[in-house]
Structure formats: structure tokens, C-alpha cells
Design a protein around this nucleic acid. Structure first.
Lengths: 196, 196
DNA sequence: CGTCTATTTGAATGTACTCAAAAGCGGTGG
DNA sequence: CCACCGCTTTTGAGTACATTCAAATAGACG
């Protein structure tokens, strides 16, 4: 199983002993996902913490008009999930699927609770990454409230340069909060404006 | 010191022994804030976890055009802060001030680190509230991406019924992401539309 | 009362959306 | 290898939602 990426990620925050690492890894299962394959759909209860080792997943909601709004992309090394469903064990509002063929590690919530008791450092790790994710969402919300569509696009390109190359434009649009048509016009009208 | 609200809040997540509670409380300091008084300004480094016991604080950023965008209101029982600055100890982008005359508890980050080592249950508590806050931000972001201004306003009224009564309308506008003028028109044009 | 801030109102403007249709592009099967 | 299919992107015209700027009105507080 390809758990080395997970262990090296954890080691940037806390240092686990060999036994602790082994205990953690033994709680994991691997899963491969085909492009466009669902991992979770709206209404599901999230039973696992999900860590991406290959490919790319995304989480998104579908509004009452049928439009997708993307909350997060998860390339290798990232966690992804519907946090509300995960902590409350109630049906979630997010869909999670694979943008590319992907491989993920699944850590059952029930196992995680046991590991927290056995390995306090693991609880610290999840506290730290929850805090970091919280900071990221705070900034994203501020950006959505204060920046124009073009500024949000530029921001996205700066923050996720590797993603911009591999994502269909409509996914970028659904992340920054505009329609695919508008993003297309916005990007193609830059040269026109400069020529005038 | 009025730490009972903090202790009862914590007890909803983990149960601390009397000694542990005492140890925590001894790390706290109290501070009173007058209406409109700053606790932190953009560029400050957040050195404390801040818990509100009375009144109401808010965190917000000011964009390049001088407009305020409110990230959070914190009535009694809530934590507030610029998480990125708190965890990285770099200058923050948020302003935090008192909406009403308020009283807060300050827990220095340095003390908190010590407490984490001494009281694992406290680390669990902060993990749990970080995860809960994360879930809240995920939903808020989805709402901002998918709902109209009117729907975001109704949402706000439902989620924070006690706040709506005591906040100036322009703060509500700065939270849901519209101009004060537009919120005013929106609220006053409902009856007009219904009369026609 | 007077001052300061918040709210309301109006007209003009702008940003982004809707709907429709065409063009591009990648994969698949004949 | 080409033809076709489905999906993405582009383009255009018309529209809607929200902003800007300005000015009037209302409220709060010393």
C-alpha cells in the first residue's frame, strides 16, 4: 500500500514512532477511483477520513438550479471530505468524485477514534491540519467577499498552478464562482482590451 | 473571573478534572472592551486564543476600496481570531473589534502549547471545535457560491436570530456580501412587490 | 439641540448571468 | 484512418442583479 506520502505528510507536523506508524497504516485501506467516479454523493454519511495519494478528487454541491459549486480540489497529499457529515454522522450535502483516475487511503472514523486514544500525537496532527484548513477557508471566504471574478481567477492560478493545467475550465469556473461562459469571455477579452 | 461559560462550553466536548480546570483557568486573563474598541488590527500577530464571555466581537477585513467584509460575529460562548496569524505567528489580515461593550478571556498561545502537553483532553477539545468551525466555513462558502443575496440574508436571520436584532444593518450587509444600500433596498422592496 | 453615523431613496452604470447556437476537441467504433 | 458522438469552450444578444454616487432622511448620543 502506498502510505509513504501519508506518513511523510504527518511527519511534517508530528513524529510518530515506528510502532505508531504501523498501527496507523494497519487501519488504512486503499481504493482506486476512475475519472468521474463518485466516492460520496449528497445524502451519504461520511464514514472515512480520505487522503489522496494519486490523481485528484473534488468536493462540490449542486444548487437548486442544477449548477455545481466546487468547494475543494484534492491533489496528492490532501485530505478531502464533508466535515459536517463526518463529525455529526448525518447525511452530507457534498458530492465527492474523481477529477482524474485516482488512488486514495481510507481511514474509518471508528478506527480514528481508537487511534486518537492510543496515539495522542495523531490527535495533535489532526488538530493542526484542521486549524490550517480553517485558516485557508477564512482566507477563501474573505477573497470571495472582496475580490472580482478576475482577481479570484488570478488568485486561483497563483495558489494552484499545477491544477490550472489539468482541470477543465468549467471546474475552475465552478470553484471561483462564475459561469463557464463568463470565465471564457473574461479570459478571451483580456487581449482584446489590451489591443484597444 | 468569569470563566464558567468557558468551562461549561468545554464540558460539552470533554470532561476536565477539577485540577485540569484550575490549571486552564490560571492561564487566562480577562479583558473588557468598549464598543468599537479594537482587539487586533490588520498586521498584528495574534498571540492569544480569544473567548467571548459578554457582548459581541467581529472579525473583518478591509479591501482595497475601503469596504469592510465581515468574516465572523462572536457572541458569548464563541471563539474569534485570525487563524492563519495564530498558527503561523505572522501578521494577520483581519481586524477584530467589539460590536458592543464586551468581556473576553485571553489564553496566550505559549500557555496553550504547555496545556496541550499537560492536558490531552484540551487538545481534543480544540481539535473538535476546529473541525466544527471548519464544517461551518465549508457550508458558508457553499452558501456564498450558490445563494442569492436575499437567500443569504434569510439564512443569516435563521442561523443568528439573536444577532439580527442587535446589529446595525450595514454589518449584516458586510457579512452576507452586499452593499448597505442594496440590503436596504432589498428589505424595503419586499412589501412593495407584494402590494403590486 | 447639534453632530455624527446609519439608513433610505433615486438614477445611472457595470458586472455577471441566461439562453441559444456554433465551433473545437477527444475518444471510440466502424 | 476517418466519421461520428458527446462534452467543453466560444460567441453573441438581451437581461438581471447588484453597485456607485449623490443627496435626503432618520436615529443615537452627548
Amino acid at each position: 500500500m502506498n502510505s509513504s506520502l501519508l506518513l511523510s505528510t504527518i511527519s511534517r507536523y508530528v513524529s510518530l514512532s515506528t510502532e505508531e506508524s504501523t498501527q496507523l497504516v494497519s487501519a488504512l485501506t486503499t481504493k482506486k477511483l476512475r475519472r468521474k467516479q463518485f466516492l460520496y454523493q449528497e445524502g451519504d454519511i461520511i464514514k472515512h477520513a480520505v487522503f489522496v495519494t494519486e490523481g485528484c478528487l473534488r468536493s462540490y454541491s449542486i444548487d437548486k438550479n442544477g449548477f455545481e459549486h466546487i468547494l475543494q480540489f484534492a491533489p496528492p497529499g490532501w485530505w478531502i471530505g464533508d466535515m459536517h457529515s463526518f463529525i455529526s454522522q448525518q447525511p452530507g450535502i457534498l458530492n465527492i468524485d474523481a477529477v482524474d483516475d485516482s488512488e486514495i487511503l481510507l481511514l474509518p472514523k471508528t478506527e480514528l477514534e481508537i487511534l486518537y486514544a492510543a496515539i495522542p500525537k495523531l490527535e495533535r496532527f489532526f488538530r493542526l491540519i484542521a486549524e490550517k484548513a480553517l485558516a485557508t477557508y477564512q482566507h477563501r471566504l474573505i477573497d470571495n467577499l472582496s475580490l472580482s471574478a478576475m482577481e479570484r481567477y488570478n488568485n486561483f492560478c497563483q495558489l494552484y498552478p499545477s491544477l490550472i493545467e489539468c482541470l477543465p475550465q468549467k471546474h475552475v469556473a465552478a470553484y471561483i464562482g462564475v459561469t463557464p461562459e463568463f470565465l471564457s469571455k473574461m479570459l478571451n477579452q483580456i487581449p482584446l482590451k489590451k489591443q484597444v
